[in-house]
């Protein structure tokens, strides 16, 4: 079976760990437990009749207490930048992380706007969002809480990862 490493990046508290939990275990918890270091989960998906084992690298959020760790990107086939639509600041920080990754490696990326079950209190207009989305191969609006779009998003991610290293 083909195995693909994918990384979940983004600021703290946007729902990276929750997305993985929803996808792999089908559960969600309101309680926030901050991630320390790295944790890898795996799950098999089928893309065009091919089974792919996704290795999901969930990492400590990038913030003032934890810098961005490029070394964990090694061997990754794709990554997602997760942001939270109740905090405008997370999009700005997400874009900064995106820029840092781009300097490091050239692999497909997905922008995930999470917490779609909540009201978007941020002030980005559709136009401004489009402007940001253009820097990614694809985007998705998800909710780890309701599960909305989570499966689809990870499948898209798997396709991106699969496509990126296929000869």
């Amino acid at each position: 079976m083909i195995a693909k490493k994918v990384c979940l990046l983004g600021p703290t508290g946007v729902g990276k760990t929750s997305l993985v939990k929803r996808f792999v275990e089908g559960i969600f918890s309101e309680k926030y437990l901050t991630t320390i270091g790295v944790k890898i989960d795996k799950k098999t998906v089928t893309i065009d009749d091919t089974e792919i084992q996704l290795m999901l690298w969930d990492m400590e959020g990038t913030d003032r207490y934890c810098g961005f760790q490029t070394r964990y990107l090694r061997g990754a086939a794709a990554y997602i930048i997760v942001v939270d639509q109740t905090r405008a600041q997370t999009l700005i920080e997400g874009m900064e992380i995106h820029k840092l990754v781009k300097e490091e490696c050239d692999i497909p990326s997905l922008l995930v706007v999470n917490k779609s079950d909540l009201d978007a209190s941020w002030h980005w207009t559709a136009d401004e969002l489009d402007h940001y989305k253009r820097h990614f191969n694809a985007t998705a609006m998800t909710s780890a809480k309701t599960g909305e779009n989570v499966e689809t998003m990870f499948n898209d991610l798997a396709s991106l990862a699969f496509g990126s290293t296929q000869e």
Binding site: T12, G13, Y32, L33, I36, D63, Y65, R87, Q89, S121
Partner: peptide, 20 residues
């Protein structure tokens, strides 16, 4: 690290949401 950062991060996040 987790106990220290847990509250520190909750503070940062709560602040950001509030600000928003």
């Amino acid at each position: 690290r987790q106990t220290t950062l847990q509250s520190a991060r909750e503070l940062v996040i709560a602040n950001e949401v509030l600000q928003e």
